[in-house]
Design a binder for these strands. Structure first.
Lengths: 244, 244
DNA sequence: CGTTCGTTTGAAAATATTCAAGAATCGTGG
DNA sequence: CCACGATTCTTGAATATTTTCAAACGAACG
């Protein structure tokens, strides 16, 4: 369907730090700045499996989707990666058919696995951060599985909207607005439902005045409590998506 | 439904290594034997969230399920943990409502997070192993999500049967037999389907002569190729479950 | 200004769940 | 070893949910 895999725009991050948009300003990562190579990608660019075959990426800003295309005729977005998240895909055992694609303009830091390990050995707080971050990503995947397994379509949609509101939203007097970086099809691929079904659910939520839509991607949550009520796992979703 | 959370049977592993059943004989872990405390649990025992609040468990033999009970009236088995797998649940961000329960007689090694980190700092090959192992577990979760999202009920069941055959099965002249450690309900909780539906699917697979059942839990795969044909992701499943 | 792609919506169809009843199995105690 | 009760499993029929298909609409783009 969609595949604009242009070559990467490489840029040494040593030069400057003119990060646009929300970046992951984590102290533990500061030390890596001089070690990492910075990449800036536009929306819908694939992150190369491994330019140098043994690398780790850190998401600095933007949004990345881990997609599995192993099933012919059906694609799944397995995981969404936010600023601060780590892509350690290049290490040995990889899920067959998995690729990483940007869902919005994204800045990445790349470094060799060896480089990262050396830094971690020299800086216990960095090692601590990496460990915890990988664990946090794991927790988000576990929640995602729980949602796929236990919630109805509508409940899952509410869950994603909550996630987006807390991750990407800006609050304007009672309503939370954000630009959904995923298309309808992509949201459907993430929530394990049909794009048609998703459209129906969005329309229903709009009819119920839970949300409003100005353009295709622009969403405003008009009634956050109602949205929470739609998702039985709202507490867990908020817990895992409200911090930096 | 089921909850027999008896106190742990603790045993110092220094004494002996009379491991019954398949244990994870990984050289990199050998070093940890003197550092770890060994626990032997019977089927259906909960692993305490954190006896000492900051511990890491390593599965040495048996099978552990990560369960999420956040949804009232519905439980999900988020992940299955096999020998060699690491439970780093005690680190900071935990999925709300997540617990670990043994699904068969299981031996665990427990150690403090600090202890493990010190060992990893002193032994790069151990650090390498831990890193890769966590990544492998991540890959399995990604595959699980792909299966939940993209496969029909029957295809998911076939996938789990493949997983069990490769993990637990012993081959006897063309057929692979194993004792399924999960009950019908538990399998359903893992595959995100109804126990009734699961029962129907198992009966159908038996009727089609793909498998045979002697007792409730005893399964023999009579036609492995047919089983693979039932699961479009069979290659991925086998890739992630056929190695030690 | 027309083409293309993504979205919306309805009606029909497929898939999976619920409920309820019956059957098989397991554990326990005689 | 057998009988009993409790639990788990199986199965059918009705129901609910979700998908598929098709058509129409809308926005984006050359």
């Amino acid at each position: 369907m969609t595949s604009t895999n242009s070559p990467l725009a490489v840029r040494q991050s040593i030069t400057t730090t003119d990060t646009k948009g929300p970046a992951a300003d984590i102290a533990a990562l500061a030390r890596l700045r001089t070690q990492a190579q910075s990449y800036r990608l536009r929306r819908r660019q694939a992150i190369p499996a491994a330019s140098p075959p043994d690398s780790v990426f850190i998401v600095r800003s933007g949004l990345v989707a881990a997609e599995n295309a192993a099933l012919p005729g059906h694609r799944t977005i397995v995981e969404l990666l936010y600023p601060g998240d780590i892509i350690a895909s290049s290490l040995q055992p990889l899920t067959p058919g998995l690729t990483y694609t940007t869902m919005s303009a994204t800045e990445l830091w790349r470094m060799g696995t060896g480089t990262l390990k050396a830094e971690m050995a020299g800086d216990p707080s960095l090692a601590e951060f990496i460990f915890q971050r990988l664990n946090l990503q794991r927790a988000r995947m576990q929640l995602h599985i729980t949602m796929l397994a236990g919630l109805s379509s509508e409940q899952r949609v509410a869950g994603l909207l909550l996630q987006a509101a807390y991750r990407l939203g800006s609050s304007n007097g009672g309503t939370i607005s954000f630009d959904m970086p995923l298309s309808r099809t992509e949201v459907a691929e993430y929530l394990a439902l049909n794009a048609d079904t998703l459209s129906r659910i969005m329309s229903r939520l709009e009819r119920e005045n839970v949300l409003a839509r100005s353009s295709r991607a622009q969403v405003s949550i008009r009634n956050l409590d109602a949205l929470k009520a739609h998702c039985p796992l709202s507490d867990s979703v908020i817990a895992l998506h409200s911090e930096a």
